[in-house]
């Protein structure tokens, strides 16, 4: 009995990967690019992953169960998505710069957009996975139709990627990890406001135009629609604008990648 104790302790600490089936499976996976590497790192941090999935649910469930007004619930969930995308990417990149990882990534003979794109894609995929339970709960509780489901998924992806773009921008400008949260808020708040999240989408004029092309405006509308409220934009508009936003944002991240890697 006693003889087995040290072995069990070592396995718990992960010192014997062969004895831990889950770790052994992960250890066999070889990352080819930054996307694979980031996903492998996230998969190995089980506790952090559980927390990441749990926190959005903890925030969303009371809103849905308590029957919160759809406008306010939609606004809160949109802010959550925007913050997750922006802060996650900005902190990740700022840490990578501080640790020297970005310098090393800048020296590999690959285009910058592929290197930074891998980091951003991985962040967006993980964020989407952690938001998936919330999306399901929202759509099921609100009795959303198939077009609203697809629109919501696409709008969440566009919102996360737009947040990531802001995160990249912040990582380019910020001096360190500590500055990131403040800088993200400074950039994010006007975009959320212009999307009509706090005041509602204006009926006419430039306010309506800006809210229409703002991915966060579309995301707020998609959440409101999925929750059974009256959305400002139709599911078709949400689909179209979100798809275009994803393409534009990815291109912008590609353009930002070299300055991000080269900045010292």
């Amino acid at each position: 009995m006693n003889a087995t104790l040290p072995m069990r302790r070592r396995v718990a600490r992960g010192a014997l990967p062969g004895a831990n089936p889950r770790r052994a499976v992960l250890a066999r996976l070889m990352p080819r690019g930054t996307l694979g590497r980031e996903l492998l790192v996230v998969a190995a941090r089980r506790r952090a992953l559980a927390l990441k999935v749990g926190i959005p649910l903890i925030l969303a469930l009371p809103l849905i169960i308590g029957g919160a007004p759809t406008f306010w619930a939609g606004m809160l969930l949109t802010v959550l998505v925007a913050m997750m995308g922006a802060v996650g990417t900005a902190v990740n990149l700022a840490r990578a710069r501080q640790s020297g990882l970005l310098v090393r990534l800048a020296l590999v003979p690959r285009p910058g957009w592929r290197v930074v794109g891998g980091v951003v894609e991985a962040g967006a995929i993980v964020d989407l996975l952690q938001l998936l339970p919330v999306i399901v709960v929202v759509a099921v509780a609100g009795g959303a139709g198939p077009d609203q489901w697809v629109g919501l998924l696409l709008a969440v992806m566009a919102g996360l990627l737009t947040g990531s773009l802001l995160g990249c921008l912040v990582a380019c400008l910020a001096g360190g990890v500590g500055e990131v949260l403040l800088d993200v808020c400074v950039l994010l708040a006007p975009l959320l406001f212009l999307g009509g999240l706090f005041t509602g989408v204006p009926r006419l004029g430039w306010g309506w135009t800006v809210a229409t092309v703002d991915p966060f405006g579309q995301l707020g509308s998609a959440f409101i629609g999925a929750l059974g409220g009256s959305p400002a934009f139709s599911p078709a508009t949400v689909l179209l604008v979100s798809a275009v936003a994803i393409v534009v944002v990815l291109a912008a991240i590609g353009l930002l990648s070299r300055p991000l890697l080269e900045r010292r």
Binding site: P17, A27, L29, M30, P31, R32, G36, L40, A44, V108
Partner: peptide, 11 residues
């Protein structure tokens, strides 16, 4: 969290 083999292979 990566192993030396994974980390070296990546680079």
């Amino acid at each position: 969290t990566l192993s030396p083999r994974q980390a070296t292979y990546f680079w």
